[in-house]
Amino acid sequence: MKKLLIILGFISAILGVVLSVTPLFKIALFPTIIAFLCGLGLLYLAKKKQLKTKLIQYIFLLSIVSLSFVIYKSIFQETKVGNTEELEKLDESSEEDAIKELEDLEIDD
């Protein structure tokens, strides 16, 4: 049980940190919550059986790091459209080309 919680906790915590730095950072909440719950479970076992708490601290630390990234990005990250210069040029040239193409078409109305 202890080993299972440690493995699951670590995998979830690392996954949480990795996902929290990607643009889909909100998804990181799921593995972070799992890691946090595993950490709590381990803490309970550690108190009951007098085990070392070093590994539990790492799981909590990684969970806090990913949670901080998620909160920071949710508050401060602006949703702005990236560079559209090329698209603007394409837009203009596409319209010019379209007018040429339309010239030889039979348009009823």
């Binding site: 643009p23 949703t79 702005k80 459209v81 990236g82 560079n83």
Partner: peptide
């Protein structure tokens, strides 16, 4: 037109 946000 569809344009992704700069974070993406």
């Amino acid at each position: 037109r569809a344009t992704t946000f700069n974070s993406f």
